[in-house]
Simulated assay, not measured.
Amino acid sequence: MVKLLIVDDHAVVRSGLMMLLNGKNNIEVIGEASEGDEAIQKAKELNPDVVLMDLSMPHGKDGLTATQELHALMPNISILILTMHDDEEYLFRAIHAGASGYILKNAPHEDLLGAIESVSSGNAYLTPSATKVLMSGYLDRVKKGDNADSFAILSEREKEVLEWIAKGYSNKDIAEHLVISVKTVESHKSNLMEKLGLKTRPELVKYAMKKGLLHFE
């Protein structure tokens, strides 16, 4: 039996998911939470196999932060992100935070059941659109002729800034961590994009993943 904890700030959504999932495909819903801190506490009390985690919970700790903290505290629990955000930056940040899977709220019920089964077995699950994002990023880099030399031309400080960007930190946060000005961070970011031939922050995240700057357990 797969023990499931549902985390969403909307009571109606939680009730609907419970009715949909409880008793299906060997799933038992053992609890629910409305925000991140409550989710972590319930996970400690109930020790679920899978946590079904929403990202946007404005009246408490958000899903990304809760995922990161819960993964650090209880790495044996699989966290499946269930969200409306079909956005590559959210996807990469969720993976880096320790999520085992990422699926959209508009996905068919059968896909959600399959995703829970997959992550409970220790496998990863990505919604088809997320898989397409990853593949697209890889193919784009291949077409651009990306190789080891592109990383070699970066300064040590630029590599540091790239790593913090990839982890989802804002320019202000990076400046505080590295004890430099926000203007200097923006300058390093601009230089990174010029040297690597990239145009957006998500492209920098993809590049960092390819170069092994993000480490997943």
Rank of each mutant, 00 (worst) to 15 (best):
I174P: 08
S100I: 06
M53K: 04
S118A: 15
V119N: 05
F151S: 11
V205N: 00
E32H: 06
I174N: 08
M19A: 14
A11V: 11
A11K: 14
N191V: 00
I174V: 10
L204G: 00
N26H: 10
G31T: 05
D54H: 00
L126T: 03
I153Y: 09
L113H: 11
L134H: 04
V7C: 09
R93D: 07
E176F: 10
N106C: 03
L162P: 04
K159E: 09
R14V: 14
N123R: 14
R157I: 06
K132R: 12
L21P: 07
A130G: 01
A166I: 03
K167W: 02
F92N: 13
G122D: 06
I165C: 03
A94D: 04
G36P: 11
E45N: 04
I95E: 12
W164E: 15
D146N: 15
E194L: 13
S34T: 13
K3A: 09
L214G: 05
S118K: 15
L112W: 06
D87C: 01
A97W: 05
E217H: 13
K44A: 13
I77M: 04
V142D: 08
G197D: 10
N25S: 15
E160W: 06
A94F: 02
N76D: 15
M57S: 01
Y125P: 06
K132Q: 11
A39H: 05
V13H: 12
V29W: 00
S34R: 11
G145H: 03
S34F: 05
K143A: 14
G23A: 07
